[in-house]
Simulated scan of single mutants.
Amino acid sequence: MSRPRVVCFDLDDTLVSEADYVESGLRAAGALLDRELPGPAPAGEALVRRWRETRGRALFQEWLEARGADPAAWLPRLVAAYRGHLPRLALRPGALEALQAVVARGDRLALLSDGWLESQRQKWRALALALPFAPVVFTDARGREFWKPHPWGFEQVMAAHPDADGFCYVADNPAKDFQAPLALGWRAVLLRHAENLHPAAAGPAPALEAASFAEVLALTA
């Protein structure tokens, strides 16, 4: 009987849309503003509209300054609401079927993701997947310096599966995702979604590319 392979997935802009998460977080922060600093219209929807227009990173600062509110008092609370909220989040179309097929063919699933720890845990909790992901590695559990391209997360996945026949990482961002796994002898698949926040990120891309989860399934077989 052949030994199992491990197919490890990234989370943001791979299994789920990062844009969906951003908008969910802006609405959560907006709900706090609506309760304690109400304006003429719902703040969350205004923040989402502004983000869609500008993709700006200073939305909270701009919103507060425009209304004469003290950013020093409000920004930590808005960031905490954004990062700590339980998002409305779903797998991308085709992802669940591909994950189920990986398990059905006898391979194993793992997850390796960067990002602020509380946010990543809440995303994973919101998905509530009844699938045997092991391990689930959030690199921020070790610290910001262990985010990709640091190899630490990949080494944790390898240590959890000493009997594996091989490892493959499926992710979206060549700027950071593939240096470490390729150096460790993994296969890698770049999954391109046209709507990703960083669709043209620069960096070393693996030889294997996919435009759908069906293609990922075939390339990791």
Rank of each mutant, 00 (worst) to 15 (best):
A211E: 14
G106Y: 06
A210L: 03
D70R: 11
E36H: 15
G56L: 11
L96P: 00
D34N: 08
P4W: 11
H161R: 06
Q100C: 04
R67N: 05
D165G: 15
L127E: 04
R57D: 12
G185S: 13
A126S: 11
A141K: 09
L59R: 15
D140A: 15
R105S: 03
A141P: 03
E215M: 12
L75H: 06
F167C: 05
L86I: 03
Y21R: 14
M158K: 13
R57F: 10
F138A: 06
P71A: 14
L91E: 00
A207H: 13
E209W: 06
E45W: 03
Q100E: 15
H193T: 01
L89E: 10
V103L: 05
V136E: 15
L91I: 03
D163W: 12
Q122H: 08
L109Y: 06
Q156S: 01
R88A: 13
V16M: 07
L111I: 10
R55S: 09
M1I: 09
A164I: 14
P199E: 07
S113W: 05
D10K: 02
A188E: 14
A210V: 00
L32M: 12
A175N: 08
E118M: 09
H150C: 12
H161D: 07
P199N: 05
D114R: 05
E118T: 04
R27N: 04
K148Y: 06
R83K: 10
W147I: 09
E45N: 06
G94I: 00
F178W: 12
R57C: 05
F213S: 00
P149K: 06
P38M: 02
K123C: 01
Y169M: 08
S119G: 05
A183Y: 11
L131P: 01
R187A: 09
P149F: 03
F178D: 10
L99D: 00
